[in-house]
Amino acid sequence: MAGSGTAHLRASDDVVLDVRNLTVEYVGRRGERVFAVSDVSFDARRGETVGLVGESGCGKSSVAKAIMQLPPPTSGSVLVDGVEVTALKGSALRRRRDKLQMIFQDPISSLNPLRRVKDIIAEGLRIHGELSKGEIETRVRTIIERVGLDPDTAPDRRPHEFSGGQCQRISIARAMVLDPQVVICDEPVSALDVSVQAQIMNLLEEMKARYELTMVFIAHDLAVIKNLSDRVVVMYLGKICEVADSDALFAAPLHPYTRALIQSIPEPDPEAGIQEAALSGDLPSPSNPPSGCRFRTRCPRVQDICSREEPEIREAAPGRFAACHFPLLEAATAPEQGELASA
């Protein structure tokens, strides 16, 4: 596949995050050039959650960092509410950061072990602060309560006194207290146990509704992505394979890679049956990606053209975008567009 092309972008006033032709390249440990993200474009409307999914090495975390300008991408443009953030430097960029926040994967590592919870959460307000001390304290207290922590005991404690799930709540509070427009969530529930993961996912949904957030949600777990996203972007080896609304994508994937991913999910249901291995082989090295379609080395539908010509993203079916020469149209045109009935 190849994720070049912009056919899937929407012309609309309420696009809050517009990522175009994002490219991230860096020099790896052995001095080789790593093509982490190659020409990726996507957008997110106000109040929408865009799920970014793919296996390790697909570049989804690099996309998150590039949007955050930590560090800025090699090339490409990132518009947040109409402002080109890649053009901002130094203090101009820092002043803009309250609009764009991030929640991290590792709940322990993302909190400074030596600072108190109230200082961790208040930090953003102090940096951008036009608020008085009293106002900051009230805001911090309110947000602590909203993320489900005890506002009487939690503020004066330090991160190691909390469990992983609670630390993730603190992380969420730190981002939300700034009232951001766009929140990038980089695998925020991957490090948590199942029982806690559901709590945090529900909390993120609550926060999204309450603050009208636009979210980019990154995960490797497709079920998590499906649950939280309105629109899903599937990535492979630094490129986009498929973009579609969440339910439609999972009901009938167009790209062979998307289908393979979905078939690999272990469903907690003994009646579901086990598929034969959907994909063979391993991910090629991102420093030496295959020619043409990057998925061709593992694709069951590969043809000659796939190695010669890189497929552009195109609208293969109404509202369905895929970067593939041979999309699985027979599945998508089937009437059952809604959801797989099983529950």
Binding site: L70, N112, E123, I127
Partner: peptide
């Protein structure tokens, strides 16, 4: 390299 430093930068800290 710890994420809390990235988080601080993301908040806009100099």
């Amino acid at each position: 390299e710890r994420e809390f430093v990235t988080a601080s930068k993301a908040l806009g800290a100099s």
